[in-house]
């Protein structure tokens, strides 16, 4: 998979939030075999300096970081947060989130396109968290995005791919655009399904972090994306409505 000219061998991106401990986060990243983890920016206390310890941990992981603008509800917030993230993390990558609805965390796609245009013009390489809407996707590509991150389902819902028809249409409409399913993945079979449909990768966080055994779940997701991609390349059969005997009928005994 290639994103903004960078070859990635793993098709699993992993979030870093909500793990039982820093040690389990580290072990989960290793077990997932991911090359990219997502991170964010939050207020730092001069006394506690919690962010300094976390940043040291992430640097030791030896993976790329994809900073996000999580929690931003306006274009201005998202653009300023992206500018701050670029300086701190030293990467032009930004997972652009402009949230439009507090209950579903559905993206404000109007603000998203506007922010993507501003950030692309400033040299950012934007990974927009979007819906499966074809027109929005087209506008994001026009704004300069080379990667799309459509949601599977609302963030942390674990509901998998909610709108299969819409996601299939998105994949078919933009066949050469790298697409990473972001949000809503709950179990490895959801990830495998996304890859089977031809999506390039998935981003998973809560499904691993909140599993009873996160490290083992990270390994399960690593296997799932590999299986899903292999299946996609192998050309899955088309579903059909009626049964068809798989054992040859010709030569059947007449008893």
């Amino acid at each position: 998979m290639k994103v903004y000219g960078i070859d990635l061998h793993s098709r699993l991106l992993l979030g870093t939030a909500g793990y039982p401990s820093p040690a389990i986060l580290t072990q989960s990243v290793k077990a997932s075999r991911t090359e990219v983890v997502t991170v964010s920016l939050r207020r730092e206390s001069s006394g506690e300096r919690a962010g300094q310890g976390f940043w040291s941990l992430v640097r030791d992981l030896d993976v790329r970081v994809l900073p996000n603008t999580a929690g931003c509800h306006s274009v201005k917030e998202a653009v300023t947060t992206a500018q701050m993230a670029r300086e701190v993390f030293g990467t032009p990558w930004i997972k652009l989130e402009v949230i439009g609805d507090n209950d579903t965390l559905q993206p404000d796609v109007f603000g998203l396109v506007e922010a993507a245009r501003i950030l692309s013009a400033e040299g950012f390489q934007v990974f927009p968290y979007t819906t499966e809407d074809l027109v929005v996707a087209d506008r994001l590509l026009e704004a300069g995005c080379e990667v799309l991150m459509p949601w599977g389902a609302p963030i942390a819902s674990g509901r998998g791919l909610n709108n299969l028809f819409g996601l299939k249409a998105l994949r078919a409409r933009f066949p050469s655009t790298s697409m990473i399913i972001d949000a809503g993945i709950g179990v490895p079979s959801h990830a495998a399904q996304a890859l089977e449909l031809g999506f390039d990768a998935v981003l998973v966080n809560t499904a691993v972090a909140q599993a009873a055994r996160p490290v083992e779940m990270a390994g399960a997701f690593a296997s799932a994306v590999e299986a899903g991609r292999a299946a996609y390349l192998a050309g899955p059969m088309e579903p059909r409505d009626l049964a068809a005997p798989s054992t040859p009928v010709v030569g059947r005994a007449f008893l």
Binding site: T16, G18, S40, L41, R43, A50, G51
Partner: peptide, 10 residues
């Protein structure tokens, strides 16, 4: 003045 640092994120 906002002072931000790296933090866990999804």
């Amino acid at each position: 003045l906002e002072i931000l640092a790296p933090m866990q994120g999804g």
